[in-house]
Amino acid sequence: MHNGFNGFSNFNNRSPLRTLVNPQEIRRSWRSGGPVITGTIIVACAVMWLIEIILRFLAPEAYMAVISEGVVSPSLALINPWRIFTSMFLHATNVLHVLFNMMALWSVGPLLERLMGHWQYGALYLISGMGGAVGLTVWAAIEPTYGWYTYALGASGAIFGLFGAVMVVFRRVGADIRPMLIWIGLNFLMPFVISGIAWQAHVGGFVTGIALTELLTKGIPRLRRTSVATRMWIYGSVIVVTLIVVTLVCNLSNPLL
């Protein structure tokens, strides 16, 4: 692998959490490849969760408006496409939902951000989250009775994309991926233990993260010597277009269209 993908040996050099709040530390962390984007996502999700809690108790109508306009639903993905992204920063008011997701993000995010670069990592995160929404849409086309009217919120679709990316990278460098497979397997089993988990988004994000990272690390031979940023622009665009096409095809059976 070339350019930014040569930084695998630095995976465990994580910056401390103080980089999330200290401007000087943030600048230093940015220059050294620290988890600035990861930290920003964590802060954004935590702030939104606190806002949800406050609104739920002080302004229930405003809380319902935020949730109803922010969650992603297969039937509304084409009508309100912003939901695909706003849903990644909303969580259930149950503290375990946001806490578990942020812990999972912190466990893999800094590794990938150092390896790929800040903006490329951010693109992977958002595209994987988009893949999670498409996973819900594919399931709606397969199971239209209930699928079109389901909704989801949370960062887990995007995080599962990061899981898939780490798995690809570990395998590429010859690292032992068994611990990662166990961790991923346990996360995939959670919907069978805890009800209300959108496993379809997990699958969609996971597949998207794997596909994009495979292209970045292998892809067209001629492009392997280009920068990670260039490859992300090219392959990220291919994945996004593919996800849009899949969404359009699935929405042929959308009862609201």
Rank of each mutant, 00 (worst) to 15 (best):
F8E: 09
S9M: 09
S15Q: 03
P16W: 00
L20I: 13
W30T: 02
S32M: 12
T40P: 02
M48K: 05
M48W: 04
I51Y: 00
P60K: 10
Y63V: 03
Y63T: 01
V66W: 06
S68P: 01
G70A: 03
S73V: 06
S75D: 06
S75A: 15
F85I: 12
T86D: 07
L90Q: 07
L96S: 13
L96D: 08
L96T: 09
L99S: 14
L105S: 03
M116R: 04
M116D: 02
Y121L: 02
L124H: 00
G132N: 07
A133M: 01
A133I: 02
A140R: 10
A140N: 10
P144N: 10
T145Y: 01
A152G: 15
A155M: 14
S156F: 12
A158G: 07
I159H: 03
V168W: 11
R171F: 11
I177N: 06
I177R: 04
M180E: 10
L181Q: 15
W183F: 15
G185D: 00
L186V: 14
F188Y: 15
M190Y: 00
V193N: 08
G196W: 08
F206P: 05
L223K: 02
T226P: 02
V228K: 02
M232E: 04
G236I: 07
I239W: 01
V241Y: 06
V245A: 14
V249F: 04
N254D: 11
N254M: 09
